[in-house]
Design a protein around this nucleic acid. Structure first.
Lengths: 85, 85
DNA sequence: TTTCATTTGTCCGTATGTATT
DNA sequence: AAATACATACGGACAAATGAA
């Protein structure tokens, strides 16, 4: 589902690149509303980064208004009606 | 391990002199492949320079192809097969 | 009720990247 | 070259919340 590697050289940070890849899956409908996005542990596993970096990636998506987080459960895709325009 | 003082008078910069000293340890095998070289903080501590100067020293070794850097972890001795000839 | 695994929240220490003064 | 500050990243630890067994 997420297969392309991250670019450690480009100007964009690892967490930004991860957020971008997940955002594409959201906008494409691959990750529908209220569907769980990859957990921090999964992100760390998928892209081979630390949980700290995984957390940053998730927080970026929350700040972009595309994802909401529930403690103890996970982070989920926000309905498109709530996306910022 | 690194005991000789730097020369603040010579033409060579402090970072160059530090890089030279570490390079000797690499070429002598005192710092074997994939062994961590002194961190920027350690360099600053050992030779009494700023972290900025320590960074420059590490950077020089990277540019010489003797060392590779991993963000968040440190800098390490590159295997001799990868050294430029 | 208790136990357990999973997930996020928080904090720590260390290291490098970047920018400013 | 130095001093400082902040961001990004890695690794580890423990707490709190959730839900299932």
């Amino acid at each position: 589902m997420f297969d392309d590697d991250l670019d450690h050289e480009s100007g964009r940070t690892l967490s930004q690149q991860i957020a971008d890849r997940i955002q594409k899956k959201i906008h494409s409908g691959d990750l529908p509303p209220d569907r769980a996005v990859p957990s921090e542990s999964q992100i760390a596993q998928i892209w081979g980064v630390s949980r700290d970096t995984a957390r940053r990636a998730t927080r970026i998506l929350v700040e972009r208004g595309l994802v909401y987080t529930v403690v103890g459960k996970g982070s989920y895709v926000r309905p498109p009606e709530e996306w910022p325009r």
